[in-house]
Amino acid sequence: MRAARFLASLLLAMAVPAMALADAAMVAGDAVAQSLTGSAGDPLRGRAIIIDRQKGFCLLCHSGPFNEEPLQGNLAPSLEGAGSRWNEGQLRLRLMDNKRVNAESIMPAYHRIEGLNRVGPVWRNRPILNAAEIEDVLAFLMGLKTENAP
């Protein structure tokens, strides 16, 4: 029983890098066109991840239409209108690994585990957001359209 559980956790640990590698192969141009889970995310769960200071912590750097959150950062552009600035595939890649688009970006790669330095043991070999969480955040952001968009 214990051995089975050990094996299961080992397989789970091995599955994470494999998933990340598969993701890299899905990049075409500046976009990842296909859903990482094969289905659409849940925008409400995505919104919760965005404002969660431990999970997505997006509001450390970005501001956005979250009136109940008084402490929003100004290190990065507002999330307002994100769904008009990019198409879904472009925004998916920017969430997964913005440095592929802009090497100088300060935005963490939310779904990459390779090429990082001195990651703390608790965080090692796991992405900031898993595939389902990426899709949830994406679903919410795609709904943030600029009013009177062309």
Partner: peptide, 13 residues
Amino acid sequence: TRMGQLDLSCGQC
């Protein structure tokens, strides 16, 4: 040097 899961250097902030 960038470091950690957030991949930030001291200087970037």
